[in-house]
Design a binder for these strands. Sequence first.
RNA 1: GGCCCGUUCGUCUAAGGGCUAGGACACCACCCUUUCACGGUGGUGAUACGGGUUCGAAUCCCGUACGGGCUACCA
Length: 507
Amino acid sequence: MSKKVRVRFAPSPTGGLHLGGVRTVLYNYLFAKKHDGDFLVRIEDTDQSRYVPGAEEYIFDTLKWCGLEPDESVLHGGNYGPYRQSERKASHRQYAEQLVKDGYAYYAFDTPEDLEKMRQDFKTEQNPSPQYDHTIRMKMRNSLTLPPDETEKLLAEGTRHVIRIKMPEHETVSFTDMIRGEVSFDTSLVDDKVLLKADGMPTYHLAVVVDDFLMKISHAFRGEEWLPSAPVHILLWKYLFGLENMPQWAHFPLILGPNGKLSKRDGAKYGFPVFAMNWTDPKTNELTEGFKEKGFLPEAFINLLALLGWNDGTEQEIFSKEDLVEKFSMERVHSAGAKFDYEKAKWFNHEWIKKSITYSLQPTVKALLSQHGIIVNNDILLDKVIGLVKDRCTLLPDFVQQSSFFFKAPETLDVDAVKPKWSETKQLFFAELTRNYELATDWNTLTLENNFKEIAAVNDLKPGELMLPFRIMLVGGKFGPGVFDIAEVLGRSETIERISKAIKLFA
RNA sequence: GGCCCGUUCGUCUAAGGGCUAGGACACCACCCUUUCACGGUGGUGAUACGGGUUCGAAUCCCGUACGGGCUACCA
């Protein structure tokens, strides 16, 4: 039941899942599946003040859409719950107390005002943001500076306090990152991070270590922004559970926007989505567009995300989820950040639409068309249409423009494209074509085209000059598949009707 | 400021001491197509800079510059 590889993804329910977040899940998922391990999701909801209602559900919806459903989570059960960090409160406190007892941590009674004062007092030009570290902890109000009986008294009275880790003064902490190799830190430069907050909730630092231990996590992967706090986590593992039980770490590079770190704002600013799915912040009512709603296929989305910072060493770029599981390797993940390129993202989607089987696109296209007032009940027809137009659709909504005219005569025709070159002979040609099509024994692309060209030849007209008008008659504009293909799908009566109506319009 | 991570075409990247630094997106040209696309062929375009090590460096080492992250009782 418990497998060798257990990885977990731990989002905080404070907003939508952006590109970097989804890529982190993806890589976690791929690694777990590749090694036939378990993929867990734990929710980091220990910060009540930043908790956003609905965000947790949103996260699971996103995972579902991407096809990255966890084996164990709040929703999926399992043997290592609870999967909401806030539900582990008691257990976390106990570990923090243990650290104090062992001399690796201490109680601190400083109020927020005290901390603010400290930052002001010790601020210099060389050090604009002084930390609560070994150089100043002996100047603060904590169980290191207070006499033991006073500490006891304060605790007994229920004075608000936190528990901080006591960073060693001069030690080098190092670990091997699966992507970066050996990374080391001087502990004297790291501050005494809060482990347990005044409200009894653990901070991420304590929670990630305790939970990973309890959940028997073998590999812990997260974004590069966590690298600076890694020494704290390494030390906690050493103090609490032993380094030999510590998971292997990997820190993924960041995904960058056009101007540095990719932000929510970049989406609106540069016109591309940054979240997997639409996310409306209930606090501000601000909408951040999603790839799903923009018209991306989930397969394309995870494909493009996977390739943003990883490749298999060959020239292959299109990977299905199964391919990715098979080919993925942590060693080939880049260490440098990758700038997101929307043009390339769209290319991936285009490739996936082209390679999609027509019937798999049916429900999506049907829904899209019905949003535009076109109800399709002929699946065979729809299938033909999708097959005809999918090569020219980059985003899913392109299907609307590319295929509505098959189901509904165009409301306006691009008359200007025809009129300047319209003539009596051309009008006569189309009248004759109509009669011919009415009587044609076969109704297929080939016959339609042959008859068309024959009549043109008889009337001493170049087919080329007639194709555009014909297209405008059927489609309304200068786009779409081959005209005779369109006519075939449209059927005899519809084709003839559109020609007749248009002739009057052009005259 | 300090600490950490990073630096190959505009962008994503290949090449982990050895032939003209390869591919993809985008862009340009041509072909195909009497629409728009798809497709095909070709083109422009990169090893941040300076030192080492070496017969030989994009690749290893050092420095500089630049970019990013962290520096909360947020994750």
